[in-house]
């Protein structure tokens, strides 16, 4: 079995490697210093499991996972306090609170091995759930990470004009262009600050700061005009929400 260790502290990686000696059939393919190296290593080695730190340079562990199409099984290793851990404890294979013992580490790996055997639980499904429960992630970080080609781009939330549904994807529209995220409208509606990002229509979530005016359109529907002139359809319920947030 193949593993990749992603942590920005060399000593932490050494420890994981040392503890992994108890599992001779798990081979460490690569150690990575940050999420960018992590993405490359995962594409290259297609590991069965990764050991992932959360606080890392530029993009954190969660953001890195969001950028991987088919994420492997994940065991988080982090010094975050338990309070923050609660958010994902049910969905990751396991999480290790630094500092952790060999015993605790072995249990986590055993858990992964048990789940990996029957192949019934697809690891990527698990990770997806983890990410969804880290619902607060974009709001907490005040930013969104997208991939354009092979490059990773970090978009501050305040640069986002609106979100638009696009089949199975969501389009993120900024002044610099559009980016696709493999997510649902529901996810963004649930996780972003509802005072700033309003689901004005089945297919649109708009950043309220971008709205310059709201015009009546057809019976019971409206158009929100954005700063750049773009017109966004607003449903009746969307209009009610907007009115209460804008205080009109």
């Amino acid at each position: 079995m193949k593993a990749v260790i992603i942590d920005d502290e060399p000593l932490a990686r050494e420890l994981t490697r040392a503890y992994l000696k108890a599992f001779p059939h798990i081979e460490v393919m690569e150690e990575c210093n940050d999420g960018f190296e992590g993405i490359k290593a995962i594409h290259q080695h297609q590991p069965d499991v990764i050991f992932l730190d959360i606080q890392m340079p530029k993009i954190n562990g969660f953001e890195m996972l969001e950028l991987i199409d088919k994420p492997p099984a994940v065991i988080f290793a982090t010094a975050f306090d338990e309070f923050a851990i609660k958010a994902f404890e049910n969905n990751a294979i396991d999480y290790l609170l630094k500092p952790y013992s060999q015993d605790r580490f072995s249990k986590a790996v055993q858990k992964f091995l048990d789940k990996a055997k029957p192949t019934s639980v697809a690891p990527d499904e698990n990770v997806q759930k983890t990410l969804d429960t880290m619902a607060t992630s974009p709001a907490q970080q005040n930013r969104l990470v997208v991939k354009t080609g092979t490059k990773v781009k970090i978009i501050p939330l305040h640069d986002i004009q609106y979100f638009e549904a696009d089949d199975d994807y969501v389009k993120v529209i900024t002044a610099e262009g559009q980016f696709l995220k493999n997510r649902t409208m529901q996810f963004y509606e649930d996780t972003l600050d509802p005072q700033q990002f309003v689901r004005v229509h089945r297919s649109y979530i708009v950043h309220v700061n971008q709205i310059t005016r709201i015009d009546p359109y057809q019976k019971e529907s409206y158009l929100a005009v954005l700063r750049n002139g773009k017109q966004i359809p607003v449903s009746k319920t969307g209009h009610t929400k907007l009115k209460s947030i804008l205080g009109i």
Binding site: E9, L11, A18, A79, L97, P99
Partner: peptide, 14 residues
């Protein structure tokens, strides 16, 4: 603090 302790933990081994 916890990251430090983790580093120490690693050092004890290596």
């Amino acid at each position: 603090l916890f990251n430090c302790l983790n580093s120490i933990n690693a050092m004890i081994l290596v």
